[in-house]
Simulated scan of single mutants.
Amino acid sequence: MSSYQQQSNLSKFFLLCLITLSSFFLFSDSTQAGNPTKYVTVHEPYTRLSGSPSGYYAFNSTPQWYSGYDNSDYLTRVFIPPGASSVDLLIRDATGNVVVARQGAFPVGEPDPNNPNVQWGYGYKLEALEGADGYVQKTGMDQLYVLKDAFFPTNGLPVDRGNWLYIKFGGGQPSWYYQIQWAVWFYPKEVNSYNYWWDNYGSNPDGSINWEKDVESVYQYHAKLKGDLDDDDDVDANDYSIFQINYKNTDSNNIANLDGRSPVDANDYAILQKRYTGSK
């Protein structure tokens, strides 16, 4: 083999390595693991909160979506968790785009700034986006204020209202300047509400949240209390009756198999006891 051929092959090898590494850094994203939708999650997985903050906790959009040029995703989503004290979603865009958003489902409408048949607004309360599209136009300073709400007078957002907020962005020119500024805050009083959800509404053997399985991988989130075998949002005598019927069942998918290990046994019963709430 000639020296030229060797050099050419070596160059091809390094080029292939560069392409492979570039693909990894461009497309590997832990926040998308298991995401079944085309809507990109713009924040990292949430975690359990610990300690006693002097002010508040906050989860935010990641730097990738927080700022950047030519870095726009036109279908995005954020998860609004139970226990949240307040939420704030602002998109900055300098090219005339608009937003359609909906909580718990894909928006039906399209982001058309020339549509005269919709009511345009900004800074929506979450309630207005639950089951209906919200249409957002620029309010000044290139701001699309999608959501601004607070829940702290009632110990945070109730568990049955936690869900994905879906956002369609477009209708203007290709975006050359684009920011998603998302934040969810937890004040000290609401931390316990959030952690109760995190500790008791997941698929892990101890009842805690598995982010990828329980949240990231779902289109519409439904909070499921560990031990709630009849799916009525409590753990009471009815659930104990269902457990007794299924005791010693060896099916790993059995409804009473709470620790993920067959058969249904005393370990599952201990989880049921721990999660007992009584009838609500």
Rank of each mutant, 00 (worst) to 15 (best):
M1F: 09
M1N: 05
S2N: 12
S2K: 03
S3A: 06
Y4G: 01
Q5E: 11
Q5R: 08
Q6I: 08
Q7F: 07
Q7Y: 03
Q7G: 01
Q7E: 12
S8D: 10
N9P: 00
N9I: 10
N9Y: 03
S11R: 07
S11W: 04
S11N: 10
S11A: 14
K12T: 02
F13P: 00
F13D: 03
F13N: 03
F13R: 05
F14H: 13
F14K: 10
F14Q: 14
F14M: 07
F14T: 10
L15S: 13
L16N: 09
L16K: 05
L16M: 10
C17Y: 01
C17G: 10
L18M: 09
L18W: 02
L18Y: 00
T20M: 08
T20L: 12
T20W: 05
L21C: 05
L21M: 06
L21K: 00
L21R: 00
S22G: 12
S22H: 04
S22W: 07
S23M: 09
S23Y: 07
F24A: 10
F24H: 06
F24G: 11
F25W: 13
F25M: 06
L26R: 03
L26S: 08
L26T: 06
F27W: 15
F27T: 07
F27G: 03
S28Q: 07
D29F: 02
S30L: 13
S30A: 11
S30R: 06
T31E: 07
T31V: 09
A33S: 13
A33V: 15
A33H: 11
G34A: 08
N35M: 07
T37Y: 06
T37H: 08
T37L: 07
K38Y: 01
K38A: 06
K38V: 02
Y39K: 07
Y39S: 14
V40G: 02
V40E: 08
V40Q: 09
V40S: 07
V40Y: 05
T41Y: 09
T41H: 12
V42L: 12
V42C: 13
V42W: 05
V42F: 12
V42H: 04
H43V: 09
H43A: 15
E44Y: 13
E44W: 09
E44F: 13
E44A: 15
P45A: 11
P45N: 14
Y46A: 03
T47A: 06
T47C: 01
T47M: 03
R48E: 08
L49W: 00
L49R: 00
S50N: 03
S50K: 05
G51L: 02
G51P: 04
G51R: 03
G51H: 05
S52D: 07
S52T: 13
S52N: 11
P53T: 11
P53Y: 04
P53F: 06
S54T: 08
S54G: 07
G55C: 02
Y56I: 01
Y56P: 01
Y57T: 01
Y57D: 10
Y57N: 12
Y57F: 15
A58T: 14
F59G: 06
F59V: 14
F59C: 07
N60Q: 14
